[in-house]
Simulated scan of single mutants.
Amino acid sequence: MNNRILQSLSYGLYAVGVKGEKYPTACIVNTVFQITSSPMMVAISINHANYTNECIKKQGEFTVSVLSENTSGAIIGALGFNSGRESDKLQNVRHKILREGAPVIQEDICCWFLCKVRDSIETTTHTIFIGELTAGSEKITGTPMTYKFYHDVIKGKSPKYAPTYVPDNEPAGDVYTCKICKYEYDNSLIPFEELPDDWTCPICGAPKDVFIKKNNETTEE
């Protein structure tokens, strides 16, 4: 069986925000879907290793910001390839904090909503949180970003803990990390050193010379 067949399914791209221990934080997810219309309920899937998972279990609430095709790749990189456990992922991201303490992204999003956790289901690697909408934006603007758009147009890749992550079957090469958005380049077919000098980060557009070689470490969002 081809282990990439599930990539034919449709996904969006979202920022899930939570109230953290030190400061509010958010991570990028592609699994948000509606469960019922009355009451209005959605489900999201968050990896057990993600800091966001821990915060949702403690706070019982989360926000969802629906990213648009105009949302900067740098925002996706900052929220999707960094850990909120020790760093302020929202430091350079325009956002607002709701009275519940959870953040809402304000960088060209389509809309946002706040959810109260009503139930959860544990899988081997992820928690599926089922939340009821308790607040949200009045307007919907722009075109929602799909995961296909993210891969085909922005040329982004799935973070290690994303539900759609598929490990490369080729031997891994050296990993180089963008100092701006933390995107990791680990293409086993084209070594980083062999990329042309005018190559830029597919997420934030930073030049090649801002990348640094890193050790293979685990990143928790």
Rank of each mutant, 00 (worst) to 15 (best):
A135S: 14
R99L: 09
R118M: 14
F81A: 09
L6P: 00
E132W: 08
Y150K: 10
F192A: 06
N169R: 07
D168E: 13
P171V: 09
Y161E: 10
I97G: 04
D174E: 14
M41S: 03
S38P: 00
V42H: 11
R118S: 05
E69D: 04
K58M: 12
P167D: 08
K155H: 15
C115Y: 03
L9Q: 07
A206M: 02
F192L: 08
T218W: 08
Y165A: 09
K155V: 06
T164P: 03
A206E: 08
Y14V: 07
K19L: 11
M40L: 13
K160I: 15
S120L: 15
M1T: 06
H151Y: 02
Y11D: 07
G73Q: 05
Y51F: 15
S37L: 12
E220L: 15
N169P: 03
E122L: 10
V18C: 10
E170T: 12
E221C: 09
K214E: 14
K208G: 11
I76C: 10
P159C: 10
S38H: 12
N30Y: 00
G136H: 05
V16E: 02
G142P: 02
Q59L: 03
E100W: 00
L114I: 12
D168I: 10
N70P: 04
N216A: 10
D198P: 00
E21R: 15
V117T: 05
R118H: 05
P167L: 03
E54P: 00
G101S: 07
E170F: 15
F113A: 13
G142F: 04
T25K: 06
V175W: 02
L79K: 02
K22R: 14
G12M: 03
Y23R: 14
T25S: 15
Q106N: 13
Q106T: 09
N3M: 12
K155C: 11
K179H: 11
L67W: 02
T125S: 13
I105S: 08
S37A: 13
E220C: 13
C111S: 14
E86P: 00
T123S: 11
E184F: 01
H48C: 07
Y161L: 14
L9S: 11
N30C: 09
I190W: 04
N92C: 02
F81R: 01
K214C: 12
Q34I: 09
I28N: 02
L67S: 04
N187F: 07
N30W: 00
H126Y: 15
A162G: 00
S10I: 13
N47M: 09
P171C: 07
R4E: 10
K148M: 05
N92I: 03
S188W: 10
G101H: 06
G77V: 02
W199E: 09
C27F: 02
I5N: 08
Y183H: 13
G17D: 06
N92P: 00
N215L: 11
I97S: 03
Q34T: 10
T177K: 15
G77F: 06
